[in-house]
Structure formats: C-alpha cells, structure tokens
C-alpha cells in the first residue's frame, strides 16, 4: 500500500515538470512586446521600463526561467502587476471559493447521478432507463455558463427566490453562503451528472451478471438492496474514475461559472488576468489549478485501493 502510494507520488513528478514548463513557456509565445501590451497605449517609457523590470523582461529567457523556477521551489510565483500582490497569496486567498464550488457541484452530481445510473441499470431498456439516460445526455449537452444565466433569470429575476450573484463567506453567514453558492453549484452539477450516471449504468450492468449478485439475490435480498449494496460496491472503481475526471471538468467549469455569478474565486482572478494580460497571475493560476488536479488524482488512486481490496494484493 505504501509502496504503491510512493510509486504514484513519483509518477506525478514528470507531470508536474510538464505542467510547470507549459505554465512558464506560455509567456514565450506572446507575440510582440508583453510590457507594452500590459501597460496600455498611454504608458510612458518609464512605465514600460518599470513593468519590464518587474517581469524580468530585460533579462534573457533562460535567466528568467531559472529565477521563475527558483521562486517556484520557494512557493513564490511572482507578483501580480495589476493587483500589486503576491500571486501565491492572491490565488490561495480565492482557492476556498473555487474549491467549495467545485466540490459541492461534484457532490450534487454524484448524489443525483449514481442513483440515476443504478435505477437505469436495474430497469435497463425500460422507461426509467430511457428517461434517466435521456436527461443525462441533455444535461451534458448544455453549456454550463448559459445554464447559470438561465437559472439566474428564472429563479433570481422572475421568481425572486435566489440571489442573482455575489458571495457570502461561509464563516460570516452559513445560510447566506449556501444561498449564494447553490445556483452556481446546481448549474455545474446538472452538466456534470451526465457522465457519472452513464458510467454508473454501464458499470452496474457489467457487474449485474456476476455470480456474487446471483448469490445476493438467492439469499433473498430485495432488488433495491442488491443494487444499493452489492452492485454499487462492485461498480465503484469505474465510477470513481469518472468522478476523478469530473473533478477536473468541474474545476474548469467552476472557473467560468464564477464569472456568471460574480463569485470571488480563482476563475474571476485568472480570467480577469487573462483579459488584462497580467502574466504572473495567469502562470500561477495554470500551475496551481493543475497542481490541485494532480493531487485529486493521487487521492483517487489511493481510493481505488480502499474501494477494491483485490487491487491491494497486486500492489
């Protein structure tokens, strides 16, 4: 078990190397003068020189890369030119919003998607199956940011049930937090539950033929119990895989949906930085979101061992 965890951890190293290379290399692709683009048309020569100094543009790319990496190893991703704040600090400050949105959305998607997939498998080819799979397919075909706008329009503007945007910190007011995050998480969950429901269904169908399921039926368990307990636990590995992938997708979706609901998360920060060409923030945002995703994948890998004891003996 520990050996496998160590192997997984080592496998993440080359991935992180590629991630950091891409995050840094992005700035080398900028056509034209980065400093001039950031400073805007009204900048004076002194402004340009200052920005060049801050970004290290007056030094050759290899030197810039070396200093970026040495900063990285100390947890320092540079300073945001526009916020005049450390990038690491700016991102870590906003990460809880993005992560809570991502996790809540993914949790809702699992709560709805896994039972829907099990019901679809239990009633395969009959109407509950077709209804659940049809709904799952429509859900995953909807643009999530658009769904967010529609929910704001219907529930916020027309029915006046929900706030139309803005964020209340969990520590300040738990009910307000839940109200502010329900709509964005719901919009995201509706588009994410499709893959989870579909994977649950096909994995459950695969397991439903097994001998141990026949045994469970033979000893007199009711159908719902057979599915909730035995089929589900047999199908958990592929479900876990798709939930892990879903985390990455939800994270990407959360970054965008923050724009729609004006939530002060990493997405607002990084996409704002993209539009205003604040390179250190863009690099840091790419790096840290990828880091989060790599860590979640590690956790998923270890969860496999917990979920499926057969994998433990091979390790």
């Amino acid at each position: 078990m520990f050996r496998l965890a160590a192997i997984r951890l080592l496998a993440a190293v080359p991935v992180l190397m590629v991630v950091s290379l891409v995050s840094f290399g992005l700035t080398l692709l900028v056509p034209g003068d980065m400093a001039a683009e950031m400073a805007g048309p009204s900048a004076t020569a002194a402004d340009l020189a200052r920005i060049r100094g801050e970004l290290g543009l007056d030094r050759p790319p290899l030197v810039r890369m070396a200093s970026w990496y040495s900063g990285l190893l100390h947890g320092d991703l540079g300073r945001s030119v526009l916020l005049n704040q450390g990038v690491t600090e700016a991102i870590l400050e906003r990460l809880p919003v993005t992560l809570s949105l991502t996790c809540l959305a993914l949790g809702l998607a699992c709560l709805a998607g896994i039972p829907a997939g099990l019901v679809a498998a239990a009633k395969a080819r009959r109407w509950p199956d077709q209804a659940a799979m049809g709904a799952a397919l429509v859900g995953l075909s909807l643009p999530d940011f658009w769904l967010g706008l529609v929910l704001i329009w219907v529930l916020g503007v027309k029915l006046n049930l929900m706030p139309t945007g803005g964020y209340v910190a969990l520590s300040a007011d738990a009910v307000g937090w839940l109200r502010s995050i329900t709509l964005p998480a719901g919009a995201l969950a509706l588009t994410q539950l499709g893959p989870i429901a579909r994977m649950t269904r096909s994995a459950a169908l695969e397991v439903a033929d097994s001998d141990f399921i026949r045994t469970a039926r033979a000893k007199g368990l009711t159908e719902p119990r057979v599915y909730a307990r035995h089929v589900l636990s047999g199908a958990l590995v592929p479900i876990l895989t798709v939930v892990g992938i879903g985390f990455g997708l939800s994270l990407g979706g959360a970054l965008v949906i923050e724009q729609v609901f004006s939530l002060p998360g990493v997405g607002r920060l990084v996409i704002g930085a993209v539009l205003r060409r604040d390179w250190p923030v863009i690099q840091g945002g790419l790096l840290l979101t990828a880091l989060v995703f790599v860590m979640v994948n590690l956790i998923v890998d270890l969860l496999y061992l917990w979920v499926d004891p057969r994998l433990r003996s091979n390790a």
């Binding site: 080359p14 991935v15 992180l16 190397m17 590629v18 991630v19 290379l21 891409v22 990455g248 997708l249 994270l251 990407g252 979706g253 970054l255 965008v256 790419l286 979101t289 990828a290 995703f293 790599v294 994948n297």
Partner: peptide, 8 residues
C-alpha cells in the same frame, strides 16, 4: 502534463 490543466 497537458491533461492536468483544466482544458478550458
């Protein structure tokens, strides 16, 4: 490495 980034 490329897949570790949120694609969007």
């Amino acid at each position: 490495g490329l897949m570790a980034f949120p694609g969007l």
